[in-house]
């Protein structure tokens, strides 16, 4: 963290984060409207804004004997974790904080979601929410190890834990080409850390909203915004890890970063409408006995390739 930070990144990061989070929410609404057969799906673009407006004017609501402190910590730590994870992500080639161990830092911040979802589910003293909170921990046990291997594999390919260096190491050949397994596993875990779509069991409809069932008003707004921000950051990290970072013809580096991030983000949002929810009581074994060995093989291949 010795190099100075370019001031423009400090301005750009929150704008991009908020803008992309809104874009993801709007795209999700449009996809939903298309799925429901609405004649003018484009009108759904403003749905997230309307929901945010409602969150601001809605009466506050408190459940019986809740642990407000823990609930609040859980809700707020989602956007905080997303932001802290985002500071190491290069916009083009410039991150806010050029950490030598950016990959580990991202991993540590992403893990904070475990706590956030569990606390939200526990704190409100509600049975549905409680079950939802525990579902996330089970999910964490399934996705976290493959996720870490995917991160390490990309870092191994570059010989660095710094996201800018990892991106720079893909000069000419993107990691996605020769680490396809790691890329797919990473996308899977990106869905999982944002408990989105097929990995949204903790907030699934069979629990009427799971961990988030009792939230309303500002709590709900912050929770959902934080979740979209996590989705954005997860998508954005895929770019320096596997998609060559800001590399691309003609356009400046930051544009390429943005374009690639949007593409990954769109794919993640779309996955929600294409796939159904995975239950961990089914998936756990597959995760440990297929994903982890597959990632080990992938790491072995990469390790042999990078040998001097």
């Amino acid at each position: 963290m010795r190099e100075a930070t370019a001031v423009w990144t400090v301005v750009a990061l929150p704008i991009l984060l908020a803008g992309l989070a809104f874009a993801a929410a709007a795209f999700n609404s449009v996809l939903r409207a298309v799925g429901a057969g609405h004649p003018e799906p484009a009108r759904a673009l403003t749905d997230p804004l309307r929901e945010a407006a409602r969150s601001l004017i809605v009466q506050r609501r408190g459940t019986l004997a809740p642990d407000r402190l823990l609930t609040r910590i859980g809700v707020i730590s989602l956007p905080v974790a997303a932001l802290l994870a985002a500071v190491v992500v290069p916009i083009g080639t410039e991150p806010v904080a050029r950490l030598r161990i950016g990959v580990v830092w991202f991993n540590a911040m992403e893990v904070a979601v475990w706590g956030a979802v569990w606390l939200t589910g526990w704190g409100v003293n509600s049975a549905y929410a409680l079950i939802g909170g525990y579902r996330f921990i089970a999910q964490g046990l399934a996705y976290e190890l493959p996720h870490m291997f995917a991160l390490i594999t990309a870092a191994l390919g570059a010989g660095s834990l710094d996201l800018t260096k990892v991106a720079a190491a893909q000069d000419g050949l993107w990691f996605v080409v020769w680490m396809p397994v790691a890329f797919v596993v990473y996308l899977f875990s990106a869905l999982a850390m944002a408990f989105w779509g097929p990995l949204g069991h903790p907030v699934a409809g069979d629990l009427a909203g799971g961990a988030a069932v009792e939230l309303s008003g500002p709590d709900r707004l912050v929770f959902l915004a934080g979740r979209y921000m996590l989705l954005v950051v997860a998508a954005a990290v895929a770019v320096p890890l596997f998609l060559g970072g800001g590399a691309g013809p003609l356009l400046p580096a930051w544009t390429w970063s943005l374009v690639k991030t949007c593409a990954v983000l769109a794919a993640l949002v779309w996955a929600r409408h294409r796939l159904l929810v995975l239950r961990m009581d089914r998936f756990m074994e597959l995760s440990w006995m297929v994903l982890i060995p597959a990632m080990l093989l992938q790491a072995l291949v990469v390790a042999i390739v990078v040998l001097p």
């Binding site: 019986l64 409100v124 003293n125 509600s126 549905y128």
Partner: peptide
């Protein structure tokens, strides 16, 4: 503030 039970 609406005092509510858990949604069941």
């Amino acid at each position: 503030v609406v005092g509510v039970g858990p949604f069941l």
